[in-house]
Amino acid sequence: TEYKLVVVGAGGVGKSALTIQLIQNHFVDEYDPTIEDSYRKQVVIDGETCLLDILDTAGQEEYSAMRDQYMRTGEGFLCVFAINNTKSFEDIHQYREQIKRVKDSDDVPMVLVGNKCDLAARTVESRQAQDLARSYGIPYIETSAKTRQGVEDAFYTLVREIRQH
């Protein structure tokens, strides 16, 4: 089974770092803004072998026109913010609204991801993020692309959301 996953969120929150940590098991430290990259990885989730087709997208506003296209083809979405960047957390709402509009559905598989949880300088409390996820009816997972904490959990949870859909 193949799953088309799309990673969305503001610029600099760590979308590529999360994806590369999942696929290649290493942490990319330097920031190089993405336009669009796709990665494929075969994994076993709950005993089922599946192929993850992951689209890593641009957070930069100037590429926002490309969003409709990949939102149409994606089956599930990782909505990523950084726990030390309140603005990126506030941006999640717009991504969710755009996904709902493009998919013409209120019920699209999504996982809210709070990345950079290895950093002490948190400005978005776990509780705020949990409340937001609960209001959307989606899971919330904290990750660190640096330490790998929660990385597999985030992507695998999204696959489970798609399966249950």
Rank of each mutant, 00 (worst) to 15 (best):
R122T: 14
A145E: 13
I138G: 09
V159Q: 09
R127C: 12
F81H: 02
E90D: 01
R67Q: 13
D37E: 03
R101M: 04
S88P: 01
K41I: 05
I92E: 06
R122G: 12
F81V: 06
A145L: 10
S64H: 12
L78M: 10
G114E: 07
A129Y: 10
R96P: 06
P139A: 10
T147H: 09
V151P: 14
V113W: 09
L132F: 06
R127T: 08
Y70A: 03
R101L: 08
A65V: 08
E125I: 11
G9P: 01
C117L: 06
V43Q: 02
L78Q: 06
P109E: 03
I23W: 03
V44Q: 07
N85S: 06
V6W: 10
Y63H: 14
Y156R: 14
V80G: 02
S64R: 07
G14I: 00
S144G: 15
A58P: 13
A17I: 11
Y31M: 13
V7E: 04
L5V: 02
M71Q: 11
A120C: 13
V44N: 04
N25H: 01
E61I: 14
G74D: 02
H93L: 09
G14S: 00
T157Q: 14
V80R: 01
Q164E: 13
D153R: 11
Q94S: 08
S64Y: 09
G12F: 15
L51T: 06
F81E: 02
Q149R: 09
S144V: 15
V80A: 05
R101Q: 07
D37N: 01
D32N: 11
F77I: 01
R40W: 03
L132Y: 14
E161W: 13
L158E: 06
Q69W: 08
Q164P: 10
H26S: 03
V108C: 02
V124D: 12
A154R: 04
F89G: 03
V7W: 10
M66Q: 11
A17G: 13
G114C: 13
D131M: 13
E62D: 12
R160S: 12
D56G: 02
D53I: 09
G76W: 00
D106K: 12
E152C: 11
G9Y: 01
K103W: 10
D131V: 09
D131S: 09
Q60L: 15
G47S: 05
L52C: 05
F155T: 12
L52K: 02
I141K: 11
K116R: 15
L51S: 05
R101V: 01
R101Y: 01
Q149I: 06
L78T: 04
K116D: 12
K100H: 04
S105D: 10
E161F: 03
Q94F: 10
F77C: 02
I83Q: 08
N115C: 15
Y3I: 10
V13M: 13
S16L: 00
L112P: 06
Y156N: 10
A154W: 08
E30T: 08
I45A: 08
Q60R: 15
A129M: 00
E125D: 08
I35A: 07
S105E: 09
T147P: 15
R67G: 14
K100T: 04
V124F: 14
I83C: 11
V124I: 14
I45V: 07
K87I: 03
L55M: 11
I92G: 08
T143K: 09
R148Q: 14
L112R: 02
G12K: 15
H165G: 12
D37K: 02
I141A: 08
N115L: 15
D68L: 06
R163C: 13
Q24V: 10
K4I: 01
Q42L: 02
H26T: 00
Q42T: 03
N115V: 15
G114R: 09
L52D: 00
V44F: 00
R134T: 07
V111E: 04
Q130G: 06
E30C: 11
I141D: 03
Y136F: 11
R148A: 10
D68H: 03
K15Y: 00
I23K: 15
G137Y: 13
R72H: 12
Y3L: 07
N115E: 06
R122F: 03
L112V: 12
D53K: 02
E142V: 11
E2W: 02
S64V: 07
N85Y: 07
E152Y: 09
L18F: 14
A17M: 03
D56N: 01
Y140G: 07
D46G: 08
Y140E: 01
H165M: 11
S126K: 07
M66R: 13
C50F: 03
Q42A: 02
S16W: 02
Q42C: 02
S88V: 02
E48L: 02
H26E: 05
P33G: 06
V8C: 09
A145D: 03
S135D: 12
M71P: 11
V80L: 04
Y95N: 00
E152N: 15
S16V: 00
P139I: 08
Q149A: 06
S38R: 00
D46R: 08
E30F: 05
H165A: 09
F89E: 07
Q149C: 04
E90C: 09
T157H: 11
I162T: 10
N115T: 14
N25T: 12
K4V: 07
V13I: 14
D153C: 00
V28F: 11
I141T: 10
I99K: 02
T143M: 15
P33M: 09
F27C: 07
Y3D: 08
S144Q: 15
G137Q: 10
G114Y: 09
F81W: 11
E61T: 13
L51K: 07
V124W: 13
K41P: 15
K87R: 03
Q94N: 12
V113S: 07
Y95K: 07
L18C: 06
F77P: 03
D106T: 03
D32G: 07
T34E: 00
A129C: 10
I45T: 05
I141F: 08
Y95V: 12
D53S: 01
Y136L: 12
V44C: 06
V80K: 04
L132E: 06
L132Q: 01
K4F: 01
